[in-house]
Amino acid sequence: MTNNMKSFIAQLPKAELHLHIEGTFEPSLMFEIAKRNGQFIPFDSVEELEKAYKFDCLQDFLDIYYQGAGVLIHEQDFYDLTYSYLEKCAAQNVRHTEIMFDPQTHTDRGVSFKTVINGITRACDDAREKLGVSSLLIMSYLRHLSEEEAFVTLEDSLPFKHKITAIGLDSSEKGNPPSKFKNVFAASVKEGYIPLAHAGEEGDADYVWEAIDVLGIKRIDHGNNSLQDDKLVEEIVKRDLALTVCPLSNTALQVVKDLKDHPLKTMMEKGMNVTINSDDPAYFGGQVNKNYEEIQEALGLSKEDLYNLAKNSFQYSLLDNVLKQQYLKELETFYLANK
């Protein structure tokens, strides 16, 4: 990669639309919070923990992801986790981020919903004021758990509805189709939440069909396997649904063996609206700028390609139109001066 291209990516105003806050947990911060809370983690050093961040599949990753999340107990822990990520956003010119959080990962351990959301939102408020990074929250249901358990989480969320913009669906995709959560998604939409879902990462194109037809989602998280079905691709383009693609996550979890084989360029050529995101950056080897850099180099993306990807990130965000247009103007001004 040329220094010119690296500098262009570093300065490019962008939004991140697919990010799990629990997946930003850097080993050094995990050790610090574990020590503060007297929590045991089965690693002797930061270096040993980093070596464990090598996965053969989604489930390998999830096993250690939930183990790490177990040290988060107090509101300050969630604040520290979130603010650490938002500082990285500011350093990468990520102007806006849409943060997914997994309440069930914590409430199942006896941590209250209030503790989780107040810690996260306090960090978001501080980052907006001190770092100039805007954010909103996506409450994710864990698909390996039951729909009944998701309904409990929905009820838990209602006193804090003003702090949450959307709902998502994550965790183990195989064997847990979107239709499993049809009723809780319908109830969530009635409460004013915007529906989103992971689909087509491990699951095939049928899962994407279900997500858009049964759950009525407004954006597709991942969506790689949409390319299995030409009619689905046509439908996604027709409905103007964006995909939140995560290149380094895809290689880390063996969804794609080599970035040179990543479908992102093909998606763009087919008219699909793609965005670049980091997913779980602490575990998958890179923040959002690293994802831009590595996919640019692997696929030979042009500055115009990168501009369009960043443009999509704002255009398909859940921001109100005033702030959306402000960010799009900032991006356009940068691009015209640096293309």
Rank of each mutant, 00 (worst) to 15 (best):
M1A: 14
A10S: 14
Q11E: 08
L12C: 13
P13R: 00
P13H: 03
K14N: 11
L17H: 12
I33P: 00
I33N: 00
R36K: 15
G38C: 04
V46I: 08
E50A: 13
K54D: 07
D56L: 06
L58M: 07
L58T: 01
D60E: 03
F61H: 01
Y66D: 08
Q67Y: 04
Q67H: 05
G68W: 00
A69S: 15
T82K: 02
S84C: 10
Y85I: 05
C89E: 02
A90Q: 13
A91I: 13
H96T: 14
H96A: 06
T97R: 01
I99V: 12
F101H: 02
P103W: 00
P103Y: 01
T105A: 15
R109Q: 11
R109M: 12
G110R: 05
V111N: 02
S112P: 06
T121W: 10
R122I: 08
A123P: 02
A123D: 03
C124Q: 08
D126P: 04
A127H: 08
G132K: 15
M139H: 01
L142D: 08
H144K: 12
H144M: 07
E147H: 05
V152R: 12
S157N: 06
S157I: 03
F160C: 03
F160I: 10
G168I: 01
G175W: 15
N176I: 09
P178Y: 13
K180W: 09
V184C: 02
F185R: 00
S188I: 00
K190P: 04
E201H: 10
G203L: 05
D206Q: 11
D206N: 11
V208F: 13
W209P: 00
G216A: 04
G223E: 09
R239Q: 12
R239D: 09
C246K: 01
P247R: 07
L248D: 03
L248G: 03
T251G: 03
K257V: 08
D258T: 12
K260I: 13
T266R: 07
K270Q: 06
N273L: 10
I276Y: 01
A282I: 04
F284V: 14
F284Y: 03
Q287R: 13
N289W: 10
K290I: 08
N291Q: 10
L299D: 09
E304P: 06
E304F: 11
Y307K: 04
K311E: 13
N312D: 11
Y316A: 07
L319R: 00
D320Y: 14
E332R: 07
F334S: 05
Y335R: 06
A337V: 09
